[in-house]
Nucleic acid binder design. Structure first.
Lengths: 320, 320
DNA sequence: TCCGGTATGGCAACCGGTTGCACAAACCTT
DNA sequence: AAGGTTTGTGCAACCGGTTGCCATACCGGA
């Protein structure tokens, strides 16, 4: 059994409240008493029970971070940045993965409620309505989604998509395939919105798709068949799967088809050809989300971070 | 303010204990009463406060999972497997990343204590002594480390290394480079041990190295210069870095040098050439760790899981 | 009709802390 | 020396639940 505050109190003949104060308000207790208490506490290996403390104070000093898929290389940098930032603010981050399942997402949020002071919701799959409802029980910061009145960190996908399309247009591509992500993905919508508004392009939409290499692999044949000379993929994983699928059909990238992804994840950098991609500000987003959660009393500041086009080897002049 | 058990009790004119029982021991309460309580609870949006409940029951129904580096693609599958397994047992998993820093690791464990029922410690960086000490406060299951009397999940690295070396030998390789990982890594030691014991090979050691692509990139020149026709790398990231470095020197893999990694991570599968690797049973390990934590009352069962050689495209017959 | 047994739900202590309030001792003032 | 501050500590209520014990009501059986 771990020692409790009572054990310490008994051990040095003092009231529990004094022990409590020794840890949470040291200036209120006489230095002599304080050191006696500390000695006894150290002796017994006493550590305050954070859960019990949270019950009265209402603060846990930890925050939850929920992602749809921790295996997606896009998230780890964001997670690490959030953890580092939180650590600097005396907070700890608990991460959980929903497996892309909205019900799991809801359950996780419910679990986090009362065990954390707030939750960072990254690329949520739940409906806005549901998120708003759950927000009554625990403060949120949403990443990659805009929800009225809720603090959010957004990445300027539209701008990135614009850069990508301009890059492709500059290389002479006109017929461009748009390989989107899961239904209801905010990012997907942004991409499509921009593409539709860009004049002079001949767009072909494919979707919805799994946001994984499997998703890319699955549409490769259709994309090849549609006559597009370039592809804008939902993310790097999809792009990589696509390239793999094209390779299996002996279609060279970028010689016959150019491919651009989103995210700038590690496998894309290691791939041959190295993937041209729109880099997402994941690190900045992680940091910012933590700050927003800690600052905002839940008030809805929205931060939009810029993206950048990284031209590598998977894009080239349009064949014709 | 979220509704508490008291609000519900008041709302339907019943004692708090009855409300409590409605949720934690339904068979003890009259069906009629029960449905009144449930109605009121639903009406008020009441959810039991898990932290408060844990205070009296001593069970939180969540477990912690600590990894050294969440950005290492080796971990996500393990994490996901653990989460899935835990979910099936009505548990939730909170993940945290230590950034390879033992002090952070210790702090995280302390934070988890009393907020979880147990902790899965993956590839810990703390000393055995410290881990044993901390184990007095919270049950552990250790992954990839052997600590006396503590439940552990081990991966049979030695066996995997043996398979890999046999594979290379079978392809006619004799001079083989061993590119190890960080100092003190248990995995590294296992690999070297096996290699040294395998007769008929001409081994060249390189290490210690960063366990990342950068580490592989950095030794590529040395490896090329040493005359080895094959390389066994600490993990896939190192192997990929190595291949990239070799490519930069116009040395083809597997035409001129064969490369084998460890882990079987996603980028290796996506790489061209696809990486031959020793697959670690990360999924099984995640599942097993959860089961061990839930079964063992902290007693030290040790499970060793087999590895498997996955031959893909980065190994071929020895030149000459 | 009386009795033991069971179903139901209230009471109150408890989990491990925190904190407003009260009170005594010590410390200044003038 | 009397009166006003500080300072340091104890007391007890409280956070949101759980649970052992007890009282009451209801049941069937003899």
């Amino acid at each position: 059994m771990a020692a409790t505050i009572k054990d310490v109190a008994r051990a040095c003949g003092v009231h529990v409240s004094t022990v409590s104060r020794t840890f949470s308000a040291p200036h209120l207790v006489n230095p002599a008493t304080r050191s006696r208490v500390l000695a006894a506490a150290d002796d017994l290996g006493y550590r305050p029970n954070r859960a019990a403390r949270a019950l009265t104070t209402g603060r846990t000093f930890n925050m939850g971070l929920i992602v749809a898929d921790i295996a997606n290389p896009f998230f780890p940098p964001l997670i690490k940045a959030a953890q580092a930032q939180a650590r600097g603010r005396d907070y700890h981050v608990f991460v959980a993965d929903t497996d892309e399942d909205p019900r799991v997402e809801e359950e996780l949020i419910r679990t986090f409620t009362k065990q954390v002071d707030g939750v960072l919701l990254c690329s949520p799959r739940l409906s806005n309505k549901m998120i708003e409802r759950l927000a009554e029980d625990v403060p949120f910061v949403v990443v990659n989604r805009r929800i009225k009145g809720m603090p959010a960190v957004l990445m300027n996908v539209a701008q990135g998509a614009k850069l990508a399309l301009e890059h492709l247009a500059g290389l002479g591509h006109r017929r461009i395939a748009l390989v989107s992500g899961p239904i209801g993905s905010w990012t997907s919508n942004e991409m499509q919105g921009v593409a539709a508004e860009t004049p002079g392009l001949d767009l072909v939409f494919f979707g919805p798709n799994q946001p994984t290499e499997g998703g890319g692999l699955a549409v490769a044949a259709d994309v090849a068949a549609c006559g597009a000379t370039a592809v804008l993929a939902y993310n790097d994983l999809v792009a990589l799967g696509l390239i793999e699928g094209l390779a299996a059909m002996d279609i060279g990238v970028p010689d016959q088809i150019s491919v651009i992804g989103f995210d700038d994840i590690l496998p894309g950098r290691l791939n041959r050809p190295k993937l041209t991609t729109v880099a997402m500000p994941a690190v900045a987003a992680g940091r910012m989300a933590v700050d927003l959660l800690l600052q905002s009393g839940g008030e809805g500041a929205t931060v939009t971070l810029d993206t950048a086009l990284i031209v590598r080897e998977s894009t080239g002049r349009a064949q014709r």
